[in-house]
């Protein structure tokens, strides 16, 4: 098959969603995902990621703007949009009393694709062939997740939505699944991934959009987002709230407007300054410091600077 999709795989223009009661979950966001691109949506709960995925999978009706999946408008052509896509939901979505094979068969029949050979092929690749004919109720969490990925892939979707696919899994299974998703990159499938784990986004995504309070506050490739913080960051921890320390650092001209504080941790991106000089200057101040270090910037830093939040708190 491997037919071409004309144009973008996902197009989102001025998308808005206001729920009953006036809660504005998505506030006029725009982005485009090219065919074969792996696109990450990052942000805490309440940022609007799930609402955005809900609109793209046609379970949430947008209040304004437009969205297209594989060229199909999700409001005017919902059936075509759904036919071109599959979803792996954040929560496990399986009929537990049915076998794994039956779960995948139901999907393949509803999408009017596949067959027994295709199910065998995917279950073998995902390491669940020896349990595929057993009730899902006996599967471990990781096995259920792999079954859901097999189910999503059996219809050969143009666009695959992965909504926090590794949340709640133990670290070993999580890393196995990241490998599975990484394997999808080479297939040319378009993937929209939401995650709380920034290492996942950094490893898997071609581009990342960071959402905060319904808006996209940054959208770029992971290297470009990291570059916005310079080549290094200085991180200091103080007793109590770090806001006072940050004010003092700014007052001394050590911290610029890129610096941010989370609890008792103050992070100073070295966009212009020299890290050893900054560390020396900090040591000379009368701050109640419990730790002081330099390190490479990460996507966590980008996220925290833009949202003033923590993933741990948001999870």
């Amino acid at each position: 098959m491997n037919d071409e999709i004309d144009g973008a795989a996902i197009e989102v223009q001025s998308l808005r969603k206001v729920y009953a009661g006036g809660v504005e979950a998505v506030r006029g966001i725009d982005f485009t995902v090219s065919r074969g691109e792996v696109f990450g949506l990052l942000g805490p709960n309440g940022a609007g990621k799930s609402t955005t995925i809900g609109i793209l999978t046609t379970t949430v009706r947008p209040t304004g703007g437009a969205a297209r999946v594989a060229g199909h408008d999700v409001v005017r052509e919902p059936l075509a949009a759904r036919a071109a896509s599959s979803v792996v939901f954040q929560d496990q979505v399986l009929d537990l009393t049915l076998t794994g094979r039956r779960n995948v068969e139901i999907h393949s029949r509803l999408w009017n694709v596949g067959g027994a050979a295709r199910i065998d092929e995917l279950s073998a690749t995902l390491g669940i062939s020896d349990i595929i004919d057993r009730p899902v109720a006996i599967y471990s969490g990781g096995q259920r997740r792999r079954l859901e990925i097999a189910r999503a892939l059996v219809s050969d979707p143009q666009v695959l939505f992965l909504d926090e696919p590794t949340v709640g899994l133990d670290p070993r299974i999580r890393h196995e699944l990241i490998d599975v998703i990484a394997g999808l990159r080479s297939t040319g499938m378009t993937i929209l991934l939401t995650t709380h784990y920034l290492d996942e986004a950094e490893r898997l995504c071609d581009r990342v959009a960071i959402m905060h309070e319904g808006e996209i506050v940054a959208l770029d490739t992971p290297p470009a987002l990291l570059a916005s913080l310079g080549h290094e960051v200085v991180e200091l921890r103080v007793r109590g709230d770090g806001s006072h320390a940050l004010s003092m650092l700014r007052g001394r001209g050590i911290a610029d407007d890129a610096a941010f504080v989370v609890g008792g941790t103050v992070t100073l991106p070295m966009r212009n300054g020299d890290a050893p000089e900054v560390v020396a200057a900090i040591r000379g101040m009368s701050l109640d410091i419990t730790a002081l270090a330099t390190r490479q910037p990460s996507l966590d830093d980008v996220y925290l600077r833009l949202t003033g939040n923590t993933f741990a708190g948001a999870a």
């Binding site: 037919d3 999709i5 071109a84 029949r109 694709v113 995902l126 196995e176 297939t187 040319g188 378009t190």
Partner: peptide, 28 residues
């Protein structure tokens, strides 16, 4: 089951997914 090595996923994409006829969907 443990997954020690990930083989390349046998995935392909297609441009026009045919939707099932209403009767077939109802039967499923």
């Amino acid at each position: 089951t443990t997954m020690t090595a990930i083989r390349p996923l046998p995935v392909r994409t297609r441009s026009a997914a045919p939707r099932p006829a209403a009767f077939n969907a109802l039967r499923t």
